[in-house]
Design a protein around this nucleic acid. Structure first.
Length: 718
RNA sequence: GCCGGAAUAGCUCAGCUGGCAGAGCACCUGAUUUGUAAUCAGGCGGUCGUCGGUUCAAAUCCGUCUUCCGGCACCA
């Protein structure tokens, strides 16, 4: 069908123009520039929008051809690759129903329902089929459908999730599908021109994912994979994953004996001697910094009556995440009560114990005389005493623990409520503001079991937590001070801010809109004044106030959310705080919640992975190890050990009967910053042979020279 | 919490369709006295995560619980 049309002009990225008689496709433009480009073309950018090569251009436009070299190409490739995977899966599993399959920063995924669910064991077959489809070199075609056509098409194909997606496409939007061979998928695109383009892809994982991201819905299988333009890039990516795995803090934490976990303390960390040294170093340095910056440090209870949290609002907003501890009292049971407990236990024991165990226990019990003795006998079995933990026998009397009246306690999940009490403890003057209260106390949060992970998500942790009480006009200055404090800390670790997020008023905000506007403006001004790159997360603030989150980037380029600064108008109101202002009137302070490390646990994880276990000398749990060539040099080595210890250096000895090569290897694997080898030569000349973990073999030097060096490195401050 | 996977010596892991539980490293002992990433030999070490079931017989098959891993949902 020929349509008479006016000529159009295409402007290319280099500024040159090309004229066409009428409408052309992006692919035509590529072909007109050169056959090589046409072949390399993956997609195109028309007036800044990424489109298919078949996209029809019918008026003047700026066009750039996207090839493997263009930054936009990877997303298109991965988006198309998820279709390739879906097609392969549909060929292998006739019942597969597709939901959504987007590209991600790392690759792509597709949420799919199959019975039984797909597992990694299915990967080889799926990948093989994907390769086969790539070989078939099927053309990928875009089809624009009416809503009715789309519904009919996906009804025929029994894709119920797709029908739901169609319903969620706003009226007036174009509905499109992409076909390749027998496969057709609802998709907005754009996509690569054909399946022949896929050369390097790999399926990486399966995981559960709720339909439409809602925990009330059924779960689909999320099949994850990644794709690159070349095998080489894919291999590099896989190597990077391997490197990250080697640095995994859970693995290094065990290897370097920093911490451990145990089944009996899920989500809680057992800090081993070496990890504890590091934890303390960070804690002390942070305390020192805060003191320097005008903070006072406090130490507050872990367990509070629920009244505190009722006042703060945590009881209604956060109770499901708190460990609630009922107040208890012990009551002596009457003979009749004891009898009824025994009857209950006996009945339950039948379910709890195997028949043999039950019979054996029962036999012992009946031989006994008093009820108290019977109960004591029954509860010698751990499974029974666990189930009936609150009933026990002491000195021939049976007691029962039970909840007492209104006495309900909870382990604190945050420090702020208690800090409100501290503020309120005295009449406060404007002269005291900003009052900065710092607390490194232990917090407990009852995180859902499935969220726990190494040190990054735990149930017991410490924050470098502080609350700053100030007046409205002090906000901007204080935030600026905080930003420089935060920068100072991260600089020491050689970590850059990737970005900061400013989260603003959410839908369910508390307080007055005007107050929020002022608060948000104060935060934004402070960010701008400090020339930080930032992004606004509109509506993502806490219900009590807006916040700034700091994202840092580690040496592998990974991003971590660490520091946070939050404004709060709610707590001061709930605790009815005030200070006496210049005009001798009570005025309500604003509270700033802030943390720099975030939690010490999580921050340790970040540091372990950032340094790959090769900590700077000041942070290393062991800074120096002395290795002897043979036992003849132990006296000299002991002299060095004493001298270093007296200088506050964390030093240890390796006097084992191993050869020096083995000792070096062990010292290297333990990531000790300095290994000092001493033998005949060193003993004779009061020197040491130094090997640095980061710089390698440094040769011999006078011990005093090394001592000066290590003294210069052994401590640090923010 | 939900979906999926896993749990075997201190660590890393092998152990096939049920039939006597293994290796390397670590640890201990002995020999070696050593010069910059693993000296040799011998030895110790296990209720196969838990509880229950099937079976003549269970690390192995089935169920329960616990914990961990990958995600999801959550994340004051």
């Amino acid at each position: 069908m020929s349509v008479s049309a006016s000529p159009i002009t295409i402007t290319l990225p280099d500024g040159s123009t090309k004229g066409f008689d009428g409408p052309v496709t992006a692919g035509d433009v590529a072909a007109s520039i050169g056959a090589g480009l046409a072949k390399a073309a993956i997609a195109a950018k028309v007036n800044g929008r990424v489109v298919d090569l078949t996209h029809r251009i019918d008026s003047d436009a700026e066009v750039a051809i996207i090839t493997a070299k263009s930054p936009e190409s990877l997303e298109v490739l991965r988006h198309s690759c998820t279709h390739l995977m879906a097609q392969a899966i549909k060929r292998l599993r006739k019942d597969a129903m597709l939901e959504d399959g987007p590209p991600t920063d790392e690759g792509f995924w597709y949420d799919i329902r199959t019975v039984p669910p797909l597992t990694p064991e299915d990967f080889p077959a799926i990948e093989k089929e994907m390769e086969a489809i790539a070989k078939e070199n099927l053309a990928i075609e875009r089809r624009v459908l009416s809503r009715g056509e789309a519904k009919q098409l996906f009804t025929e194909r029994k894709e119920k999730y797709k029908l739901d997606l169609i319903d969620r496409i706003p009226e007036g939007d174009t509905i499109s599908a992409y076909a390749q061979g027998e496969f057709i998928d609802l998709c907005r695109g754009p996509h690569v021109p054909s399946t022949g383009i896929f050369k390097a892809f790999k399926l990486t994982a399966v995981a559960g994912a709720y339909w439409k991201g809602d925990a009330n819905n059924e779960q689909l299988t999320r099949v994850k994979g990644t794709a690159f333009h070349s095998r080489k890039e894919l291999d590099e990516y896989l190597a990077r994953i391997e490197e990250a795995k080697k640095r995994d803090h859970r693995k290094l934490g065990r290897e370097l004996e920093l911490f451990m976990h145990h089944d009996w303390a899920p989500g809680e960390t057992i800090w081993l001697p070496k990890g504890h040294i590091m934890y303390n170093i960070l804690g002390t340095m942070m305390s020192d910094l805060c003191r320097e910056e005008g903070y006072v440090e406090v130490f507050t209870p872990m367990l509070f009556k629920a009244d505190l949290f009722k006042t703060s609002g945590h009881w209604s907003h956060y109770r499901d995440n708190m460990f609630v501890v009922p107040g208890q009292e012990t009551k002596q049971l009457t003979e009749g009560e004891v009898q009824s407990r025994i009857a209950l236990i006996e009945r339950e024991a039948g379910n709890l114990l195997s028949k043999n165990e039950y019979d054996a226990l029962k036999e012992k019990v009946t031989a006994k005389a008093t009820n108290a003795e019977k109960l004591a006998q029954w509860t010698t079995n751990d499974r029974i005493s666990t189930k009936f933990w609150n009933v026990f026998e002491r000195g021939g009397v049976v007691y029962e623990l039970h909840e007492s009246g209104n006495e309900v306690f909870a382990l604190k999940a945050m420090n702020c409520p208690c800090h409100m009490l501290i503020f309120r403890d005295q009449k406060r003057s404007y002269r005291e503001l900003p009052l900065r209260i710092h607390d490194q106390g232990v917090l407990h949060r009852n995180e859902a079991s499935g969220t726990l992970s190494g040190l990054t998500r735990v149930r017991q942790f410490c924050q470098d937590d502080a609350h700053i009480f100030l007046s409205n006009e002090m906000i901007e200055g204080e935030i600026t001070k905080l930003i420089s404090m935060i920068s100072r800390v991260y600089k020491l670790f050689g970590m850059e801010f990737a970005k900061v997020f400013l989260s603003t008023r959410p839908a369910d905000f508390l307080g007055a809109k005007e107050t929020w506007d002022v608060a948000e403006a104060s935060l934004e001004n402070a960010i701008k004044a400090n020339k930080l790159e930032y992004q606004v997360n509109a509506g993502d603030g806490a219900f009590y106030g807006p916040k700034i989150d700091f994202i840092v980037r580690d040496c592998l380029g990974r991003e971590w959310q660490t520091a946070t600064v939050q404004l709060d108008y709610q707590l001061p109101a709930r605790f009815q705080l005030n200070f006496i202002n210049r005009d001798n009137h009570p005025e309500m302070p604003v509270v700033v919640h802030r943390a720099i490390f975030g939690s010490f646990e999580r921050f340790m994880a970040i540091l372990i992975e950032h340094y790959g276990g090769n900590f700077p000398t000041w942070l290393a749990p062991v800074q120096v190890r002395i290795l002897t060539i043979s036992e003849k040099f132990e006296d000299y080595a002991n002299d060095l050990f004493r001298e270093l210890s007296e200088n506050g250096v964390r030093v240890e000895k390796d006097f084992s009967a191993e050869k020096i090569g083995a000792k070096i290897r062990e010292g290297r694997n333990a990531r000790i910053p300095y290994l000092l080898t001493v033998g005949e030569k060193e003993t004779a000349t009061a020197s040491v042979s130094v090997r640095s973990q980061t710089e390698g073999e440094l040769g011999s030097q006078q011990f005093l020279e090394f001592l000066a060096r290590i003294n210069g490195e052994k401590t640090a401050r923010f």
